[in-house]
Amino acid sequence: MIRSRTRIVDSDTLAIRRASRLVGTRIAIACAAVVAVVIVAVFVYILSEISPGELFEPVPDTDNLQVSAVNLLRAAGVLGVALIILAGVLSFLVTRRAVQPLGDVLRIQRAFVADASHELRTPLAVLDARLQILQRTLPADDPSSSVVAELRSDAKDLIHIVNDLLESAEVGGAAVHDTVVVDLVAAVEAAVQSMALIAVDKNITIEMDAAQPAPVRVPASSITRCAVALLDNAVRFAPSGSIVAVGVAVTKKTVVVTVRDRGPGIQGIDPARIFDRFAHSGVAVDGGGAARTGFGIGLSLVREIAVRYGGAVHVVDSGAAGTAISLTLPRAKPAAS
């Protein structure tokens, strides 16, 4: 069996690196533009002070040093290039140091979320257990039975949210161990079977089209969790009676899972931002699905897992005809015998 050691990279670290590169590049370009303007000004000044015929003639110096205009221009050009390179290096170093406190804050935030989630899990579990006992002791014709059932449903929702928060916080900080090759198709099929039970209530059909095999070095539970989050989002906004399509495509280097719904599309928010924690759109969603504008933390968890294992997740397209989201993961090489 081939062992593969994966480098830990969470989405927060990736975002900081992108911001650092972007700011550093802009500073470098600005510095380069200033140096270029200065060099051009020097060129223009030197050329304006001499005639074309004198351009290649050496100019005698009082100390018997002879310098030609061409050599002077060449020296100015070399100096300008050196200054541009120096400005670029310094800008990246300064930017990297400047964004370091932001990374520390994000790590503290992640630790706080994990700690808070741990503290909330136990009392919520106790609350759910007590509600379950109360629900069992109530007679079937008790008028408060429906209220207790709703309370227990709300408690379960809170437990799911806390579990998602905890998993999202721990995914980026937990150590990555060697992962065996698993079949992504089987893990996605497990998610489809689970979500099909929920989709039935809305008269939605989930159809899957997958190629065999689809080997990846990602835990099957993580793949199933990602597929459930993508399907939950699709079913939530899909109109009643529609079809949610799940496709698995295998290329030479990647495995791509695409979930497509027939909902109204992403509205009131940049599609790339739906993977942020607790992202909310600015307008109400109408025309299919519940009138919810929040995307929860399920999609942010998908991004965490994808980035952690060298993959990515993005919105393929979104419009009045529906939304398609793709999860891309590196394809695993066959194990050596």
Rank of each mutant, 00 (worst) to 15 (best):
residue 140 A to M: 14
residue 243 I to A: 08
residue 193 Q to C: 07
residue 227 A to M: 03
residue 255 V to Q: 08
residue 237 F to T: 04
residue 179 T to V: 12
residue 127 L to Y: 00
residue 159 I to H: 02
residue 194 S to M: 10
residue 147 V to D: 13
residue 125 A to L: 14
residue 134 L to A: 13
residue 222 S to P: 02
residue 199 A to D: 06
residue 238 A to H: 04
residue 161 I to P: 07
residue 219 P to M: 05
residue 164 D to C: 14
residue 158 L to W: 10
residue 250 V to A: 11
residue 237 F to L: 08
residue 233 N to Y: 00
residue 223 I to K: 00
residue 231 L to N: 06
residue 161 I to E: 15
residue 238 A to E: 07
residue 141 D to T: 15
residue 136 R to Q: 14
residue 251 T to G: 14
residue 131 L to H: 00
residue 138 L to V: 07
residue 146 S to M: 15
residue 231 L to F: 04
residue 131 L to E: 00
residue 173 G to W: 07
residue 234 A to Y: 09
residue 232 D to N: 14
residue 230 L to H: 04
residue 184 L to I: 05
residue 243 I to Q: 10
residue 145 S to I: 15
residue 130 R to V: 12
residue 168 S to R: 09
residue 137 T to W: 08
residue 174 A to E: 06
residue 189 E to M: 08
residue 224 T to W: 04
residue 242 S to W: 08
residue 176 V to D: 03
residue 185 V to G: 02
residue 196 A to H: 09
residue 229 A to M: 02
residue 228 V to L: 12
residue 155 A to W: 00
residue 188 V to D: 01
residue 222 S to H: 08
residue 242 S to Q: 08
residue 168 S to P: 04
residue 180 V to R: 05
residue 231 L to I: 06
residue 211 A to L: 06
residue 128 D to Y: 12
residue 186 A to L: 09
residue 207 E to F: 02
residue 198 I to R: 03
residue 197 L to D: 07
residue 243 I to D: 12
residue 134 L to P: 00
residue 153 S to R: 11
residue 192 V to Q: 01
residue 156 K to R: 14
residue 187 A to D: 02
residue 168 S to F: 14
residue 168 S to A: 13
residue 181 V to R: 02
residue 123 P to I: 05
residue 210 A to M: 04
residue 185 V to S: 04
residue 195 M to W: 07
residue 169 A to T: 11
residue 245 A to Q: 14
residue 167 E to G: 12
residue 250 V to R: 10
residue 241 G to L: 03
residue 132 Q to W: 08
residue 205 T to D: 05
residue 236 R to Q: 14
residue 172 G to P: 04
residue 230 L to F: 04
residue 177 H to N: 06
residue 156 K to F: 15
residue 157 D to W: 11
residue 168 S to M: 12
residue 201 D to R: 01
residue 160 H to R: 11
residue 146 S to W: 12
residue 233 N to I: 00
residue 239 P to N: 05
residue 179 T to H: 07
residue 236 R to Y: 11
residue 123 P to K: 04
residue 221 S to N: 04
residue 253 K to D: 13
residue 255 V to C: 11
residue 212 Q to F: 09
